[in-house]
Design a protein around this nucleic acid. Structure first.
Lengths: 136, 136
DNA sequence: CGGGATCCCCCTCGATACTG
DNA sequence: CAGTATCGAGGGGGATCCCG
């Protein structure tokens, strides 16, 4: 590593982002950044919904994946599950206080994406065009 | 809805979260919230790195996945790729201005996770304990 | 209605080998 | 060094059935 052209890592602490595979933060991120989790958290903001309502709202989710996602979110303490002892059964899902704080954070991510989606689309088009040039 | 227990929506409408499967924002989110993308963006903040350096820093990434990830990020205009015409070949990766704005956003997500990881761990432990009770 | 259990397919990803 | 090409295993996730 004699090549001093690249800045050394040490003093800006990149290591605050843990790059280890078994990192706890990584696990949690993988979970909450999940496609369905994101949408469930989005929809549960400021309202509680029943299983079937969620399923109807979220286009393309299978019953199994919604079930799995909700169980994970419940386990992580982000979503609460309330069973009403009636027939037919009724189960309500809502964000916990912890889940509500996450909603704000996720919202900023979505906002960024919405704000920049045209730039990204343009970058993709440019990239694809460039590649097509190369091939011909 | 009408349950006033939750904090108000301000001017924000939940319905603007697009739940359609083919939604553009969803695609982009899936990409940037990706495990490896997150780490690459993290590491490239404030410095440029070579392929092998990235590979060494990111524990567990295969050569193929790093390559694929970098190409996607480049295509999306988040990362720039600079080839130096020397032998042996040298390629530097860095964040574009667009990528740098994303870094801030992602960082807040990571910060949230770091701040709440104990709460989540506790929630999981409680959930698992509860389930174990049920079974016995 | 709200799911658990099962089967099975496809797609992702890792390993390996090869190139400029 | 910095990748691409190919192949094969594994698991995520859909479809279906069934039960409380």
């Amino acid at each position: 590593m004699e090549e001093g052209t690249v800045e050394p890592l040490d003093d800006y602490d990149v290591r605050q982002w843990d790059t280890r595979e078994d990192c706890e933060v990584r696990q949690i991120l993988d979970r909450i950044a999940d496609k369905w989790s994101l949408l469930v958290i989005a929809l549960l903001d400021c309202q509680s919904l029943r299983f079937t309502q969620l399923r109807r709202e979220i286009d393309g989710v299978s019953q199994r994946m919604l079930s799995v996602t909700l169980r994970q979110l419940e386990r992580d303490g982000l979503v609460s599950r309330t069973v009403h002892p009636v027939v037919p059964p009724r189960v309500d899902y809502a964000l916990t206080p912890l889940g509500r704080t996450l909603h704000q954070t996720i919202k900023s991510l979505v906002t960024w994406t919405e704000a920049h989606q045209e730039e990204i689309a343009a970058a993709r088009a440019a990239y694809d065009a460039r590649r097509e040039m190369m091939e011909s």
